[in-house]
Nucleic acid binder design. Sequence first.
DNA 1: GATTTCGGACGATAAACTGA
DNA 2: CAGTTTATCGTCCGAAATCA
Length: 375
Amino acid sequence: MTTEPPKAPPSQEPQYPPAPVAYPHHLGPYPHAPPGHYPYLPFPPPDAASAENGQNGAPPGFMMFHPPPGMLYYPAAQTQPYSPPPNSQVPSALARPKRKQVKMACTNCAQACKRCDENRPCERCIKYNIADSCIDGQRKERKKGIKRGPYKRKNKMSGGEGGSPSFAEAPAESSVGEWAPSGAQPATTPATTAAAIQAVSQQFVPGSGPGGEPFYPLYYPPHAFLPPPPTDGTEAQSHPSGAPPPPPMTYFLPGPYPPFPYPGFMHGPPPPHLQQPPQPQPQPIPPPASVTAQPPPPVTVDPAGAAKPASANGSDVSTATETSAGAGAENGSKKRGRGAKNGAEPKAKKAKRGSGKGSKDDDAGAAGGEGGEAE
DNA sequence: GATTTCGGACGATAAACTGA
DNA sequence: CAGTTTATCGTCCGAAATCA
């Protein structure tokens, strides 16, 4: 895998988009596009018409309309698994590298739930002068013969050989909840905002468009859009310390067509079946913290089952696998009731794995008792 | 402030399934 | 049988508790 920073686009991509993407400065660097792809575009191509033909430096087939502020599009066909370039400056929530684990932690580290390394004695054991007891533990054998139900196949988007789902699949992990629809948590950091954006985009299943290549709309929370910092010494319109009132902004519906309620947005009338009654002006959206309040009634144009309500609040709809990712982090502060460890509690240590993710594997702890479910 | 505890997120991977 | 999906098990993050 040669995942390299998209910033130096392949030859076929001249200088579009121009310069550093204008991106809400307080959000940090703009999220990277998948390798070899164009960065997200918070603005229309230099020339819509020519963009359509791939002229003027704009990629062919790129968007031909002007997105409202706060909306980005990403060509569906180009999606690939996202992997942030090394040493990128992507916000941590986005760029967080996968945690690497040693194959086997020493018994000491394992017991302490601390990071170990391959060496023996490991660094930690040396540090604490317990090098002599730094030995590998023993892995337990995986259970066999456990029957499972039929698998649900993931819908292979666009059948593309890339095979993998949208790039957005990746980092949803932290805090989709930030500005996602219901009961979401208050916004926190720019980083999580970015993550949220990706998470949301993930919900729009490709191929849902009637014929044409769908674009993934990526919505930015209103507060994300502030003028870039002044570069020439002049005062920026409104991003100084005073936390300017975010420009009012509508949430749009996902779908194969660009959201039309935006003035000066569409080149033509929306297709009949998408026509909507005149939308009342969006209510002024409250400050960031409550951005979450007004979720887009995500469906309407929504084809098939494409969009699930962005149930950010943990319910992590989607696949079972994601389980933890979606669920846990949601409110950032996982409060834990530290059990009152009464003095010298023998290190029987947690009946391993009994707790957290569902007691499904309670058996593990139960060591003695063979897996409950296995019948 | 350093160290210990430990809940739970996350990574790795083997076993069960599936489709060709 | 190769590829995919899922369950299981291990690692270790990170916050609270405790110690010195």
